[in-house]
Design a protein around this nucleic acid. Structure first.
Length: 423
RNA sequence: GUGGUCGUAGCUCAGCUGGUAGAGCACUCGGUUGUGGUCCGAGAUGUCGCGGGUUCGAGCCCCGUCGAUCACCCCA
């Protein structure tokens, strides 16, 4: 056993699964990029207060799941538990909202929550997310949801569902929470549950116990308290989704874990992962910019969990490409230096080339060539170096043709060009 | 943070009621001179998660600890 182990609860990816992970992540990134969202690369740690204020004091994330520490200057620092607060901070700090609106950005990276690990729940996990800040319009809500949905579809996922709701504006919430608290005080609950309900009564709707579910059947529904404006917006979002051909179910008891959501909120749920069924979610946040010291602009965004989406792909048995895309594999026979020089020369021409190391026997070298998945291979021995002629072997068909070393690059380029890799 | 299950070669696992470790896959080398994927042969590999205890003796029993896993809580 090795002396060092990875910290508890982190996810790690290496071949062959790392290729699957990368495929999921890059697919999600490309769908965002394809809709005009631009990369925002942010620090993984921020001033602790950014999260306590941004995410909300009452949330579990802030109360017990943050990795917080003091840096050498005595500042309280926290590893980011989610992406939106940082994006909003950066937008405000760099005055990005002074230009054309909306500001459309995407991010991709690691996030941290100190929870007990579980299937699909890690202490360091990965998200790809987007934020559209500055314009409040059902059209943007629909676009954001559509992009998330398309990312999942492009991966080939089928067995997921989109749940949406509207949390209404602050007026809606105040009125609703008052009613809900009154209702809850009328039912009997154990101490712990009561304490949870006190902090955020909405969370009761997430309880999995049958008796609680039953007790809540007659609870007031937030949807009934929506102001005219909120409800008109929500209707617009729904009808846009429908015309986009995106299926959804309205879940008027959806509970989001972050306090800043207002208006449209949504979640992508997949049943193949065990208890942690959310693969992504998001919503509109009308008060966050102002709360963090910026202008009164609203925003909307989502975060998609890369680790969980990978699990969902695996649960659905989706074939994920793991081809390294190598054009050529060189098997040297006592000529490793010539092989390396040749490999570098070919690489400079844009070809993907690998070679065998470690003075292996011919059979071992060919095995390595086979395993690499390269489309072509050559054996480079003293003879080839002297004659400047090699047998270029097609690994799939097994056939080989004689080629001079000087023309090898062009030969490979013309043979792989129809694969769309060289331009 | 609470609870259940588990922890043996790189991987998947076997190891009977305690007697000082095994299989398959993968790996390396070979099957008469330099061409992989099938087949055959040979070979290497483990402080049995870690620490302590019981015992003449522990991978198998007990305690602790670390980790994994599943569920609760919560969420990506």
């Amino acid at each position: 056993m090795s002396k060092f182990q990875a910290p508890k609860g982190v996810s790690e990816y290496f071949s062959p699964r790392s290729a699957h992970f990368e495929f999921v992540r890059s697919t999600l990134i490309e769908t965002a990029r394809g809709a005009g969202y631009e990369l925002m690369e942010l620090p993984v740690f921020e001033d602790t207060e950014l999260f306590t204020r941004g995410v909300g004091e009452s949330t579990d994330v802030v109360r017990k799941e943050m990795y917080t520490f003091e840096d050498r200057g005595g500042r309280s620092i926290t590893l980011r538990p989610e992406g939106t607060a940082g994006v909003v901070r950066a937008v405000i700090e760099h005055n990005l909202d002074r230009g054309q609106l909306p500001v459309k950005v995407f991010y991709s990276g690691a996030f941290f929550r100190a929870e007990r690990p579980q299937a699909g729940r890690y202490r360091q996990f990965y998200q790809v997310g987007i934020e559209a800040i500055g314009i409040s319009d059902p059209l943007i809500d629909a676009e954001v949801i559509a992009i998330a949905d398309r990312g999942l579809k492009e991966l080939g996922l089928k067995n997921y569902r989109l749940e949406i709701t509207s949390l209404g504006d602050s007026k809606t919430r105040t009125a609703y929470l008052k009613e809900l608290r009154a209702f809850i005080s009328g039912i009997s609950l154990d101490e712990e549950t009561k304490a949870r309900a006190d902090i955020n009564p909405l969370r009761l709707f997430d309880d999995k116990r049958e008796e609680i579910k039953k007790a809540l059947e007659k609870a007031p529904v937030l949807m009934d308290f929506l102001t005219l404006e909120s409800s008109t917006d929500f209707e617009a979002v729904k009808s846009l989704l429908t015309s986009l051909g995106i299926k959804f179910v309205v879940n008027n008891r959806m509970v989001r874990g972050l306090d800043y959501y207002t208006g449209t909120a949504f979640e992508f749920v997949h049943d193949g992962l065990g208890a942690q069924s959310g693969i992504g979610g998001g919503g509109r946040y009308d008060g966050l910019m102002a709360e963090l010291g910026g202008s009164e602009l609203s925003g909307i965004g989502y975060g998609l969990g890369v680790d969980r989406i990978l699990l969902a792909c695996e649960a659905e048995g989706l074939a994920i490409p793991e081809d390294l895309g190598l054009d050529l594999f060189i098997v040297p026979l006592g000529t490793s230096q010539d092989a390396l020089l040749l490999a570098e020369e070919l690489r400079s021409r844009g070809l993907a080339v690998d070679m065998a190391f470690g003075d292996r026997a011919l059979k071992g070298g060919m095995k390595a060539a086979d395993k690499s998945g390269a489309r072509y291979s050559i054996v480079l021995g003293a003879d080839e170096v002297a004659s400047k002629n090699v047998a270029l072997k097609n690994m799939k068909s097994g056939e080989s043709v004689s080629v001079t070393l000087g023309s090898l690059a062009n030969e490979l380029i013309s043979r792989t060009v129809n694969l769309g890799e060289h331009s």
